[in-house]
Design a protein around this nucleic acid. Sequence first.
DNA 1: GTACAAGTTAGAGTATGCTCTAAATCAAGA
DNA 2: TCTTGATTTAGAGCATACTCTAACTTGTAC
Lengths: 133, 133
Amino acid sequence: MSYSIQQASEQTGLSVHTLRYYEKIGLILDVARNAAGRRQYSDADLQWIRFLKQLKATGMPLVQMKTFAELRRGGHATHAARRGLLAAHRTAVEAQISALHDCLDLIDYKINKHLQGENADDNTTSNRNVAGE
Amino acid sequence: MSYSIQQASEQTGLSVHTLRYYEKIGLILDVARNAAGRRQYSDADLQWIRFLKQLKATGMPLVQMKTFAELRRGGHATHAARRGLLAAHRTAVEAQISALHDCLDLIDYKINKHLQGENADDNTTSNRNVAGE
DNA sequence: GTACAAGTTAGAGTATGCTCTAAATCAAGA
DNA sequence: TCTTGATTTAGAGCATACTCTAACTTGTAC
């Protein structure tokens, strides 16, 4: 099964512009072309693009994804390197989750403060050591 | 207690450039000045800046933080609006956490795949419906 | 064959969020 | 007083990640 750039866009949720851009900067490699020079995305291509989207959702910069894309093209020899990258990123994602939980706690505290109708404009007298209103 | 911009920078982890920038775009309001026109940050200011930093860590755009900053200046009358904003943001942060957990799962799958020495370059024969290598 | 939609490229433009520079002012120590 | 370092402003510059434009080619329907 192969897909036009428009179909790939629909399947992945990235715009056609973005798909071309990702290819230009080396995130998507070796996309097949038909006789007329048009892109023919494979299922594997779409899976890879969805993976990129996931990585992006975790805040990974495109340049780091590019590193991964290049390693991927290197085949078996690069398995260890890719594993290392993923492991490092895993740690980063866990830290992010932890930071978001902290923020949730803070938001809950703030919401609660507002619900109770406390003087929410005077941070200096807060009985809890959290950031200002 | 009041703090110079340099001290505020040290206390909050934002650069002095960023502190001035945040003030310029309306994220930090009504910072006191001494006779010479130099900024004198209060403890309340620092708490507010730390709160901004937390919001930023959750991916909130500066323009939305600015809305919150303006509401804050509005005092009691804006409590409900602020509560609404925070509640909406809470939902967004929860969604983010959930997305990050999904990504962790995917990363774990990938790491595992590499550890086992499977053919990690052939996505089309993957026995699991996840994104490409 | 003639529209018309969809594809191609290179390259310009935009949005966000800083980050730095220049020129001037100010405060404190030798 | 002179120097050094910190501050001030307006505004320029930069990095990231798109997003769009122009000019052209291709494929399909009528």
